[in-house]
Design a protein around this nucleic acid. Sequence first.
DNA 1: CATATAATGTTTGTGTGCAACCTAAAGAAG
DNA 2: CTTCTTTAGGTTGCACACAAACATTATATG
Lengths: 164, 164
Amino acid sequence: MSSRICELVSKSALYHKRLMTRMLERFDVTYAQYQVLKVIKQHQPLSAKEILVHLDTDKATLSGVLSRLEQRGYIQRDRDRSDKRVLHVRLTRTSSALLEAIEVKETECTDSLTHNIKNRELKNFFNVFERIINNQLRKIDEIEQEQRRQSKEKENDNDEETPL
Amino acid sequence: MSSRICELVSKSALYHKRLMTRMLERFDVTYAQYQVLKVIKQHQPLSAKEILVHLDTDKATLSGVLSRLEQRGYIQRDRDRSDKRVLHVRLTRTSSALLEAIEVKETECTDSLTHNIKNRELKNFFNVFERIINNQLRKIDEIEQEQRRQSKEKENDNDEETPL
DNA sequence: CATATAATGTTTGTGTGCAACCTAAAGAAG
DNA sequence: CTTCTTTAGGTTGCACACAAACATTATATG
């Protein structure tokens, strides 16, 4: 029965991505790009690191997405003058207008997901879902610690063979 | 509020994939590969097309995964003698044994997701989730039809310019 | 039989997702 | 000032998602 959760979550995430991709097709923007653009819009100007805080993705992935967005003229990347490591990312006029149009379509899509679901049902749904997600996080932690222990043991074994 | 669904679904799917990836790390198998192996185990021997029925993925992706699985000696691919287009895919001894071990770990992971959730709560959760997924599918259909109408119109426009 | 069409897989190209490594700049310690 | 460490971001390599084009083999149809 528990494995049913994984099926539903995976399937639903797949469909969500598919829906967004279809919706974004005619705007010629990918879902990942749109998510980044939204964050930029809400907080611009901001650095790459700040974008990451809002997105649960990876800096390597983000770097690629930003490159493509800049190439297409959707964003501007400038270095900070006092600290030349950090970026200042902001939208261009083109993308600001584009985002307005997309956001309308997006709410249309997300709203359609709940039209036959009562408020009370939804509330319980969220409640259980959040507990499940916490369980996921806990289990991930548990496994990562397990791995760390094992690799530390291996490291110690190596130290014995090749000491300082 | 509806957009909260998308957040939770995306986040949970991400965590699920992360959990499975961590769990599979020491078996040196990716999550996609494991999913394919599981389907093969349950129905072997079977064709690539039949694998796709059980997986909601793409034939191009599957082709790559199967190549890698074959390279590592986890599966065997033979052509059907009477219809040389179709494959007969089956596990090797190595992977059969491996799968047994992995499946134990997997149930351990999935079971941990529900340990603090009552049966009734879970039942309601599934019920709502399934309705949401249906709504997702409906909306995807709606958008795909919209796109088809638009591309058909464009096609007609082209026909007027370049008739037979 | 010959040609058109359909079915099964593979290949190719673009965009992620993610780990591992690299660079340049900033800060800290001596 | 010099060296060590940390930080922001970029690059590389591998696997996958997915669209589109392709090859091969079957099948339908004239």
